[in-house]
Write a protein that binds this DNA or RNA. Structure first.
Lengths: 144, 144
DNA sequence: TTCCTAATTGAAAAAGATTATCAATAAGGA
DNA sequence: TCCTTATTGATAATCTTTTTCAATTAGGAA
């Protein structure tokens, strides 16, 4: 089901601002904060209020069409979410983000932790940080 | 090594505000945002500027004496960090946070993802969300 | 202990980020 | 094409976080 269908299915309208935000996220390689989405919209010549960006991102998040990426320093940004549960690797060099799946790989750990703590676990957050191939090369060049 | 020693070791002074913030985090069961730390300090009768809270938390984070906990809606808060690498489970009911270790359990997944993506992974973020034993009971009671 | 110096603090102001308000607009069914 | 209602966007209000800078204080030296 396309994001447009999901939106309508959930009782929301398919509007210009929502289209613009989705298009921008779709073209972005790195996660974007609201103000960055706003700026890109302006650069692309779209007229779009900052408030709409906030509202749209909140809505898309609620519908799981976008996901939050957390940075170690404490801020967070939005990326497009593929259907299904995914995790992200974030490049510390260029901030590029790539998805990967593997929720099953956590099953053993989840079970162990439930056992040990008595918590009932129903969700998790997993992100990897590192360097993408391009940034690894850049670093290698700089040193040599 | 105590946090006091770590601080001094790193070239910082052991001051009243830093002591207060550490004491508050030490007594907290749930993660605290800066304004919450500030309020508790006031309640405890301590005089302490909000700016110092921000500065102190940033410093403690840098020294790995505290850790960030991320909430799914996008905000983050601070908890005391035990020495060594730990992860957290956060109760969606009462926000209580408990630490658990198990970085090794991610080794297989990390290796697989490095292989598949070509990224060089050097850090990760893992958190579980769920209900603590007390909140499970509370829910059970409410239903019955 | 007392003095000295540099790190640290705190108050106020500035800057940024987010949310509320509400009249004007536009989506999409009739 | 028209109508109804969700949605938008400009402004203002609120929070949150950072800067700035004079006053304070920690901790080594005398």
């Amino acid at each position: 089901m396309s994001w447009q269908e999901q939106l309508v299915e959930a009782g929301y309208r398919l509007t210009r601002p929502r289209r613009i935000v989705m298009e921008i996220l779709n073209n972005a390689r790195a996660p974007l904060v609201p103000s960055a989405v706003f700026k890109r919209a302006q650069c692309d010549g779209h007229s779009l209020g900052l408030v709409s960006v906030y509202r749209t991102l909140a809505l898309l998040l609620e519908l799981d069409l976008v996901t939050l990426v957390h940075f170690s320093e404490g801020c967070h940004a939005y990326v497009l979410a593929s259907p299904g549960h995914h995790h992200h690797i974030i490049c510390s060099g260029c901030e590029e983000v790539i998805e990967f799946s593997g929720a099953e790989d956590l099953d053993a750990l989840t079970a162990r932790v439930q056992q040990e703590t008595g918590f009932h676990i129903d969700d998790h957050l997993l992100q990897f940080y590192g360097l993408c191939p391009a940034c690894q090369q850049a670093v290698a060049k700089k040193i040599s």
